[in-house]
Design a protein around this nucleic acid. Structure first.
Lengths: 253, 253
DNA sequence: CGCAGTTTTGATTCATCTCAATTTGTGTGG
DNA sequence: CCACACAAATTGAGATGAATCAAAACTGCG
């Protein structure tokens, strides 16, 4: 629950408001600022409903027809791509307030799988409706473009991670990124629960699960974090940042 | 020169048409199909001019204010990102008909560097003008969204490459990708000139330049390609495809 | 309480990096 | 046009980080 909102807000149960962005306490995360009331009403009309997913369920699969993008109302997802020869690369982990499905716009087919890593709920936004509305509401158009661009920039960061960093730098970067995103949502930056397995972390980071496990153990031995299975406490943020930016041997190139 | 157009078209030199998309023989590459004449005229009005760059010149740098996206009229570019500790990851190579600058939309600052790898010429498209026009011309809006989405999907492919492939698979994938893009532009798919150094290829593929060089040599020894410095002939596409999809040892996860 | 999935840890192997020397190519100026 | 200097590419030998193979420990769920 975002810290910026009082936790004593009583949720409305009026049916017509159930899927209303204007009533959603996530709107600071997934919507542009400065929409007028009338614009918010238009946006409410665009939301094509909600959908709940159990842990392990697919929101969409590679090859599915693309029709909508999805805002995560609650929960945690991973996206991954497969090669024909069966190799599997996790391309991202998405949490509350983030958006899924942008990969499908280009070909009108989804190009990756999106799986819930815990029981989750999403808002479905039919893409043609979104495009129509965004051509009328300039701030929404701009917001959508920024969202796509940020996804590209994020992917560049992952390329840097995969192309240039060693195992421990990758894991430190990953933990600090998660920490920051939990913090932005009003959760603790220091203590959190991993929703994914070591294997999924490894797939995302281009490492084997044993390597991920060993790096966790070493961070713990060094006193940077404490690890109990999926429960993580960050004890020394600066230490992790040092690992991320100060490669043991020669930097550069 | 795209094969789909006769090579005897005489270029127009009327000043007012010099930067006109409607007269550009690249329009099949970088524009949506099915624009009416009046829509094309509107598009022409959006182009904010041209710019020529010498080899080695920067089109933009990380941190520059974002104002426009750039369509490559002729030439070859690389984009790269730097970490604070000086490591440098090439995030892509862009050729004629492709677009640069999408990274800057999210923060209104460019987040990577774009450098010409040969003398080049770009069309400058002021972003606010593009957004305005795309909200009026639906096919243009759709085309722009597809372009951004394809960039995301392309990046996912690079993540797969960096996260899951071995050195020779990466290089084979890279060569086949270049080959296909040259072919789409009417050039030979089998024979081409690399515009980038081994070090830049290595940076893109997450490898050291020596490893790239060794992989080239091995491909040549196996008879898949012939290499003379930057001149490449692909002799056995199937062989390269086998390398790409049939990892030597165990496949999968 | 036991089983299956997950995680940890250890021993060994292997792909790629690193360091170093040599060759080849390119651009410049006499 | 040639020679020189510098950048790029190749090749070899050895070091190393992560993968692989293997086994044990932990967790949570029925």
């Amino acid at each position: 629950m975002p810290a910026s909102l009082p936790s004593n807000v009583i949720p409305l149960h009026v049916p017509t408001l159930q899927s209303a962005c204007s009533q959603c306490n996530l709107r600071e995360l997934c919507l542009p600022l400065g929409l007028s009331d009338s614009e918010l009403d238009m946006l409410d009309a665009v939301i094509g409903g909600r959908r709940k997913l159990k842990r392990g369920q697919y929101l969409y699969r590679s090859g599915d027809a693309f029709e909508a993008i999805y805002a995560i109302k609650a929960g945690f997802f991973k996206t991954d791509v497969l090669t024909e020869d069966g190799r599997d690369q996790v391309t991202g982990f998405q949490m509350t307030g983030e958006v899924l499905g942008l990969d499908g716009i280009g070909t009108e087919l989804h190009t990756c799988n999106a799986v819930a890593l815990e029981d989750s709920e999403i808002c479905l936004i039919p893409f043609t409706d979104l495009e129509r509305l965004s051509s009328e509401v300039h701030t929404l158009q701009r917001h959508f473009h920024k969202m796509m661009s940020r996804e590209i920039v994020r992917d560049h960061g992952v390329m840097m991670l995969l192309g240039k960093m060693r195992a421990e730098e990758r894991l430190a970067t990953f933990l600090l990124n998660l920490s920051q995103r939990f913090m932005a949502r009003g959760y603790s930056a220091a203590e959190f629960h991993l929703r994914m397995t070591r294997e999924e972390i490894g797939s995302y980071l281009g490492l084997k699960l044993e390597t991920v496990s060993r790096a966790f153990s070493r961070f713990q031995d060094e006193g940077f974090i404490s690890v109990h299975q999926k429960h993580i406490c960050i004890l020394d943020i600066q230490g992790l940042k040092m690992i991320m930016t100060h490669p043991p041997s020669s930097s550069g190139t």
